[in-house]
Design a protein around this nucleic acid. Sequence first.
DNA 1: CAATACTATTCCAACCATTGAAAGCACCCT
DNA 2: AGGGTGCTTTCAATGGTTGGAATAGTATTG
Lengths: 276, 276
Amino acid sequence: MTATPETDTPPARGKRPKQGEPVIDRALSLLAVFSDRRRALTLSELARYAEMPAPTALRLIARLVAWGALERLDDGRYVVGVRLWEVASLSPRGHGVREIALPYLEDLFEVTRHHVLLAVRDNEQAVLIERLSAKDATEVAYRVGGRAPLRSTAIGLVLLAGADQQFQETILKRPPEIEPGVSEMPEGQLRRTLSDVRRTGIAMIRRSLPSRTVSVASPIFDAQGAVVASLSIVVPDGSTPPNVLAPAVRAAARAVSRNLGFQAQASADVRTHSQG
Amino acid sequence: MTATPETDTPPARGKRPKQGEPVIDRALSLLAVFSDRRRALTLSELARYAEMPAPTALRLIARLVAWGALERLDDGRYVVGVRLWEVASLSPRGHGVREIALPYLEDLFEVTRHHVLLAVRDNEQAVLIERLSAKDATEVAYRVGGRAPLRSTAIGLVLLAGADQQFQETILKRPPEIEPGVSEMPEGQLRRTLSDVRRTGIAMIRRSLPSRTVSVASPIFDAQGAVVASLSIVVPDGSTPPNVLAPAVRAAARAVSRNLGFQAQASADVRTHSQG
DNA sequence: CAATACTATTCCAACCATTGAAAGCACCCT
DNA sequence: AGGGTGCTTTCAATGGTTGGAATAGTATTG
């Protein structure tokens, strides 16, 4: 124990690395370290990925564990806790829509026996809120809680088509990302597609990875007529033809919309549409 | 909330009231304010319920919103954000079990067309992880993300019966809570019931509120043979008799267990059981 | 239409929770 | 035994944090 008040003890003081960041941000960055691939992490892993010293990480984690945001496994690793999940279940755009939509998703699922998806938009991506899949269903690209691109998925196109003009322009201007298995559309075609989606209430996309599938999606509106979510079905390419699926998907989406207080308009275009 | 000023507040000396609490705890206490009844809150509501000055609350909330843990509505109120939901979806005991169990829940649901529930234990309560319900199903007491007592629900009894001895004793010693609609068991009977649940793999409870229902639940085991979740079905009293439901519920629960890596033992008692 | 009441936001100087290097433990592996 | 890795505790310096006060905005009332 060095308890001697030294006078000449300025031992090459290293700069405090990342001091200055708000505590909450640090705590949240710890949570953000968790991902599909990283569901259980050790202290040092958390500290490393969140870029902070181990003692700091430990202190923050201790608080998070005490509250229940994280849980500690027997082997010492940390995982996201049920308490956090519990609070998160109050997210209107998370479990909120889900709760209302689920019965209709189930109906659609039972009839078709194919993947049924529900997603909302968060920033520039679609977040998968729910997915019903048969045990023996074809492989599917995205998991619940995961994110999907807006431009290259049916479920994303619907959300993009329903977003405010300004946001759409931002995305449209962006150079197409290259994603394997889907053919990205040039800006012109994308514009036309979005317009079609708005008009018909249906988006359709074919992709070849991870397996050859066709997706058909339709928008869910809230009471104000805004697109709040997107409902989609994914079937193996070559099984049920899309034009047969479309009415079922649209009907399911409409049913959910109605349940959200949306008054189906007599007019064809419910929302602002750009050009004819 | 009756605003009683001088409850435990020290002499109003103009001193900092509650300074000294870790920032994270405060931030988390803000999250904890949200509940089934309080899904959208104003700044002042949040500050009031979390017991902190408005400026402090605002500052913390700002960070939470920036990260996406909270979202701000057009009317200025705050709700739990999708980003938080996204991270929470990585909770092994939350979405984790759910993901694996869902297909089997669906099967059970389709066959029976009654409420199918999935829950895990968190502390002294059961947390509802999933609930499948028909659109026209009977009213049910608990919602997904909500909590249910261990002693007076079938789904809870299963979790209690599967908990470690020490925890069980703690609960058993506790005086029975009075919950309307269910008859609480005295300690002796409860002990016998728990033992039965362990032996048979089935818990059954009848309740009269919010409607007359019968619940049948069965444990889900992980690879180590520990009870990690509980699967239950809730039917209107007088419809399908419990002894008909039991096998179906047990089978579904076992199917999930197997999927979790549980090796069904030949022996009857898989886990430590107290006394015969 | 002013008065009242409430909520939201900005400011800022005092202050205490926060910080991370260092050192001590506890386990591996070889 | 020795080297390595990861976890935990300690502690003094410090800068993020704090909340009263003031201001602006908004709804309600007389």
